[in-house]
């Protein structure tokens, strides 16, 4: 372990800054992980557990026992008698400060004890119904479907339209090319927050308000995507295009059969980004969509928060469901994503 930690820039020499570096990285990892882990753990707790304080670090539920002669399973408690002896009992009912209990070994005999003598036994328990219930109770599946629809359609269109524009900008000389490229890049400077009011007017004018296509179409053209793909296409030799032209391929066929397949790495990066952007989109769908049956996950989730303020067990479960796809994508494509961000500066 020491040897592993000591492998720093100067082999064999470990100074205080190396320890500080490791300390910082480890501490930072905890800072990142704890809130997320806490949400995941909490999402598996029962409603009673989630509202109890102080919180338990593991999801638990009351231990129960089925006793002959009792209709329902009874919760299990430890009774500490005044003489200090301990005894496992099952709670039948509780009135004020006294409780009626029985010894599971002798189910016929019930007796009363003060509540202060009782301590509840809990066992490890994962409440998976937090995940299944909202699917039935709320329109969660609907939100999920809407989000998947928006994400998939918008990503496919983004890849298609942006690559077409990038193809024109990288492989042709035509009047107005540089002006159009500059125009497209200039849209990077215009964030949604500045134009959200008139953009919504346009959506209303196009009769796309409260329509998933209103969310999709306005996000399809991205300057980032055009830029990324154009830079990549510039590295494809022009000879290939000309060879295809000599081979009697139409311009569209050159794009479709030659340029697009060769752009696969750049398309993959853009696809990853597009999926994450669309999956996480919040402000724009919030403006465009108004009826719950059109909500995306993010909007649905944030509306749940207002609606069911106390039902944290459901909200957290749905939060975990929402962050899961992005997490899976990240785990598998971590290298692509971080390198894509580092090299292009897009997010």
């Amino acid at each position: 372990m020491i040897a592993f930690l000591a492998r720093t820039r100067h082999p064999g020499r470990t100074d205080i800054t190396d320890w500080l570096a490791w300390g910082w990285a480890t501490l930072g990892t905890l800072v990142v992980a704890i809130p997320i882990a806490w949400a995941v753990i909490s999402s598996l707790k029962t409603e009673a557990e989630i509202n109890s304080f102080p919180p338990a670090l593991v999801p638990r539920a009351a231990q129960t026992i089925t006793v002959e002669g009792q209709e329902k399973p009874l919760s299990v408690w430890i009774r500490t008698a005044p003489d200090g002896s301990e005894q496992t009992v099952a709670l039948v009912r509780r009135v004020g400060l006294s409780a009626t209990v029985l010894d599971p070994a002798k189910p016929e005999e019930t007796f009363r004890v003060p509540v202060t003598e009782l301590r509840q036994l809990k066992e490890f328990h994962l409440q998976f119904s937090n995940y299944t219930e909202p699917m039935k109770q709320f329109d969660f599946l609907r939100y999920l479907w809407n989000t998947v629809f928006v994400t998939v359609v918008a990503t496919v269109l983004t890849l298609l339209l942006n690559s077409m524009a990038a193809f024109a900008l990288s492989k042709y000389r035509f009047a107005g090319r540089n002006a159009m490229f500059a125009l497209i890049l200039s849209t990077m400077m215009i964030p949604l927050s500045v134009i959200m009011v008139p953009a919504f007017m346009v959506i209303v004018g196009l009769n796309l308000a409260d329509n998933l296509w209103g969310v999709i179409l306005s996000t399809v053209s991205t300057p980032t995507g055009v830029f990324l793909l154009r830079q990549y296409m510039l590295t494809i030799p022009d000879d290939l295009i000309e060879a295809a032209r000599v081979d009697a391929a139409s311009e569209f066929r050159i794009y479709w059969r030659i340029v697009l397949p060769l752009c696969a790495p750049a398309l993959a990066v853009l696809a990853i980004f597009s999926v994450i952007w669309r999956w996480n989109d919040f402000l724009w769908p919030l403006i465009v969509l108004s009826s719950p049956e059109n909500y995306t996950l993010q909007i649905g989730l944030s509306s749940l928060q207002g609606q069911f303020n106390v039902q944290w067990h459901y909200i957290l479960a749905m939060t975990v469901v929402t962050l899961l796809p992005v997490t899976v994508v990240f785990i598998f494509l971590q290298k692509y994503i971080t390198e894509g961000v580092a090299s292009s500066g897009v997010k």
């Binding site: 060879a243 000599v246 009697a248």
Partner: peptide, 30 residues
């Protein structure tokens, strides 16, 4: 294409994502 010429490029300009067979047949499929 209309002139019906064929050209061999200095860089060969073979389609890197296609097999040799596909490289040969691409023009005919077009």
């Amino acid at each position: 294409a209309q002139r019906q010429i064929a050209m061999v490029f200095q860089s060969y300009a073979l389609y890197p994502h296609m097999s040799v067979r596909k490289n040969l047949s691409f023009g005919l499929e077009n």
